[in-house]
């Protein structure tokens, strides 16, 4: 279970407060969505949870299954079961996608005291999972995300998620830059990974992604706080009326 309590975060360089006391609990097996206008702090929350540099936690806590994750290095958080699907997956010229995936899978296994996957087992698994996401052999061979279309990059994120089998998946605006078909494919990939032991935090501007990845709980974030929490109907309300009504109501 991911538990965030009164989390306060500033931009390190500017000292500007972005998160102003976020409270959120995502239970095992549940899908929570966070919606909110631009600049509300949604992406910052995802970066802070995954350990990106440049943010300073000034208060509060975040834990995964009782372990304080804010003190961990990014790789330790990953090994603990946290996964961030990036809004803008990073291109790494010169590193093959396969090499990258195998290094990541084995590094996490090693960190957890498990045996590394053999080259043959890895290959078998990655091929099967890639096929489900319509990722061809050519894409696996290419350098990480280099020359990938927007849709390919997002599918590649989901493939990594499928291979790494995290407990807690954060999807940061995974629908941005995707057409309807690409979004469906990504959503199918995510839905296939839904299970009792795995939770999701889906960050999105729009309700449409939530048509495909059905959330259990929807939160509205504004100005660095969760201002409203409800069921899937809350997402529909946003879709129909925009954020203004909700923000006016909680103000």
């Amino acid at each position: 279970m991911l538990e965030i309590k009164d989390l306060k975060v500033e931009l390190e360089e500017e000292g500007k407060a972005i998160l102003k006391g976020v409270n959120l609990s995502v239970e095992d097996g549940k899908v929570h969505a966070i919606m909110g206008p631009n600049g509300s702090g949604k992406s910052t929350l995802s970066y802070v949870l995954s350990g990106k540099d440049g943010y300073e936690v000034t208060g509060g806590s975040a834990s995964l299954d009782g372990e304080d994750i804010l003190e961990m290095e990014p790789e330790e958080r990953a090994a603990a079961g946290l996964f961030l699907a990036f809004q803008y997956p990073v291109e790494i010229p010169g590193v093959g996608n396969m090499t990258f995936l195998r290094t990541a899978v084995n590094a996490q296994r090693k960190a957890r005291g498990e045996e590394e996957l053999s080259a043959a087992d890895f290959l078998k698994e990655v091929r099967a999972k890639a096929k489900d996401l319509k990722i061809d052999a050519e894409m696996l061979k290419r350098p990480v995300n280099v020359g990938f279309s927007g849709g390919e990059k997002k599918r590649n994120e989901i493939l990594q998620m499928a291979m790494l089998e995290p407990k807690m998946c954060i999807l940061d605006e995974t629908d941005s830059g995707l057409d309807v078909d690409a979004m469906k494919l990504v959503a199918e990939g995510v839905n296939a990974l839904r299970s009792e032991g795995r939770s999701f935090l889906v960050i999105t501007h729009y309700q449409r992604l939530l048509d495909h990845i059905k959330p259990d709980v929807v939160h509205i974030m504004a100005d660095g706080r969760i201002v409203k929490t409800g069921g899937p109907e809350l997402a529909l309300e946003v879709e129909n009326n925009g954020y203004a009504d909700i923000l006016a109501e909680v103000a």
Binding site: A78, F100, A104
Partner: peptide, 18 residues
Amino acid sequence: GLFYLRSRGVPMAEATDL
């Protein structure tokens, strides 16, 4: 790039080598 690799569980030293 370094953060991307680390966020996937690749330790700092190994990520630097990659």
